[in-house]
Design a protein around this nucleic acid. Structure first.
Length: 123
DNA sequence: CCCCTGACGACGC
DNA sequence: AGCGTCGCCAGGG
């Protein structure tokens, strides 16, 4: 948690490529239950140098780590493009629905309502 | 070292 | 409103 602020300072000076996984994980861990955010929002929060692609890539490497709620990260349209990388193809949707988020055809319903913007919420 | 490949996103047509 | 292109940047072949 607090490391996010450390990260912000770090990034402001110079972001470390070696630790940017950790920076992504820290932000993802802060996503409240029942809320979702996007790859791009995380990338922007961490400084735009990290393109949204890199955020997805970092999450990919984290699929072993259990304490990362990666299911709360979707693309900018609210689609579950990463569901393929979970244990089962339906797990991501099941996790979201267990938190009260409705998903139809890999698309989160009322996405704007659940969207959590780190740049805005964390300051 | 060059080329390809992405859990993405902005833009143009 | 959809689809194609291109920029993004780290790894792998």
């Amino acid at each position: 948690m607090l490391s996010v602020f450390m990260n912000m300072a770090k990034i402001r000076s110079k972001s470390s490529n070696a630790n940017f996984f950790q920076e992504v994980y820290d932000v993802v861990r802060l996503i409240p239950q029942g809320r979702v955010t996007t790859y791009g929002a995380i990338a922007k929060f961490l400084g735009t140098k990290l393109s949204a692609r890199m955020v997805g890539w970092a999450l990919n490497c984290s699929h072993t780590q259990v304490d990362i709620p990666a299911h709360r990260v979707v693309n900018r349209k609210g689609m579950l493009t990463g569901k393929h990388f979970f244990a089962t193809p339906t797990q991501m949707q099941e996790l979201l629905e267990a938190e009260g988020i409705k998903v139809i055809n890999d698309q989160i319903q009322d996405f704007e309502k659940y969207f959590w913007n780190p740049s805005q919420e964390l300051m």
